[in-house]
Simulated scan of single mutants.
Amino acid sequence: MDIRVTGSGPTTPFLGARDLFETEYDLSLPVDVELRDDPDVRTWAGHYDDRHVLNISRQAASSAMARELALHEFAHMARYEQSHPSHTQSTEEVLYLALAGKSVERRKLSHCYQIANHMKDIYADDITLSVGPGEKLLSFLESSLAAAVVDRPQTTPQTGRTRLSAIADPEITAVNAAFALALAERHDLVESDHRLYDLAHVAAVDAPDVPFHAFKRRFRELTRDPDSSSYRQVLVDATRAYVGEEDSGSET
């Protein structure tokens, strides 16, 4: 597995991630690591005919999560090379199938893209967590969810309703919480008394119209090796459930 780092910055996290990744997997194409100055640049992978590109800020590359972030992106690259349905299915096609003839506000439409990304991340992290430890990922999930939740209830003056979560959109925060908990349960990363459950409960309470438990079940129970047709249907069903066009199913 060939890694080429462009720009000044640490290389150890990427080499360490490669060593972990290569215990079980390999990539056919080389990986160009692009270290970027903007600290707000999220870590993401690009795929081209002759290479993959891992884009990451220097700040993230120097963080305690750098190796895990790189390993996660390598896993996305592997799924892409495998032509896994989660990484080949067009989200636009799914939204067209799921929402044809429906009027959906732009905010919820953007959330549907995030739901599709969560499913991609589930499949990537099936690889990530098969070759590396899960402690840092669990801490990352916990801290990310905690950032969207406040410790003290706040009452909105418009409705008088008590909100437990912060200014982040409560509906997508609930979906994000379902994803975090589903991933942790899928890989046995949490005990029943873990703080992640408390944070997820707060997020779910703040978004009563989101079928939290059904989304957790959808994420947690994604088939390990779906065919293209079944995966497309899973995405269509999840999209319709989020916008309220499908029965959300039982709560488990």
Rank of each mutant, 00 (worst) to 15 (best):
P133D: 15
S110Y: 13
S139Q: 13
T155P: 03
A75C: 06
V104M: 00
L109R: 10
P157S: 10
A147D: 15
R79G: 07
L141P: 05
F140M: 05
A75P: 10
D126Y: 09
S103H: 14
R79K: 11
A100Q: 10
K102H: 03
L145T: 08
R163Y: 15
K120C: 10
Q154L: 12
H84L: 00
F140K: 14
Q158T: 12
L95D: 00
S143H: 13
K102F: 01
I127Y: 11
P157M: 04
A78L: 15
G101D: 04
L145W: 13
Q158C: 04
E142K: 09
A124F: 00
H76Y: 02
H87C: 02
K102E: 06
L137W: 11
E135A: 15
L137I: 10
A124I: 04
A146Q: 14
L109S: 05
L145C: 06
N117M: 09
V104S: 00
Q82N: 07
K102R: 10
Q158H: 15
H111D: 09
S144V: 05
D125S: 11
L109H: 08
R161K: 14
A148E: 14
T159S: 14
S139T: 12
A148H: 11
I122N: 03
V131T: 05
L97A: 12
R107V: 07
N117R: 09
V104N: 00
S110W: 15
V149F: 09
S83L: 14
L99M: 07
E92T: 13
H118M: 08
Q82W: 13
P153N: 03
I127Q: 10
P85C: 01
V150N: 12
T155A: 12
P85F: 06
S86F: 04
H84Y: 02
S103C: 03
L99N: 00
M77I: 08
H118L: 03
A98Q: 01
Y123S: 11
V131Q: 07
K120A: 10
Q89G: 02
M77Y: 09
S139L: 13
A78S: 12
V94G: 05
T88K: 00
S83Y: 15
S90Q: 08
G101A: 01
D125I: 03
S130K: 14
P133F: 06
S143T: 15
L141D: 07
D121L: 09
Q154E: 15
A116S: 08
A100W: 04
Q89N: 10
P133L: 10
Q154I: 12
E105V: 14
N117A: 08
T156L: 15
T88C: 02
R107M: 10
T91K: 05
L95R: 05
G132V: 01
T162E: 13
E92R: 13
A146C: 05
E135R: 12
L137N: 10
Q154V: 13
H118G: 00
H76E: 01
A148I: 03
F140V: 05
A98C: 03
P85R: 03
D121G: 01
A100R: 13
T91C: 08
H84N: 03
P153H: 07
E135N: 08
R106T: 09
Q154A: 05
I115S: 03
R107K: 14
A100F: 07
Y96V: 13
K136W: 10
F140R: 12
G160R: 02
Y123N: 09
D125T: 11
R106K: 14
S83Q: 12
A147K: 11
T159E: 03
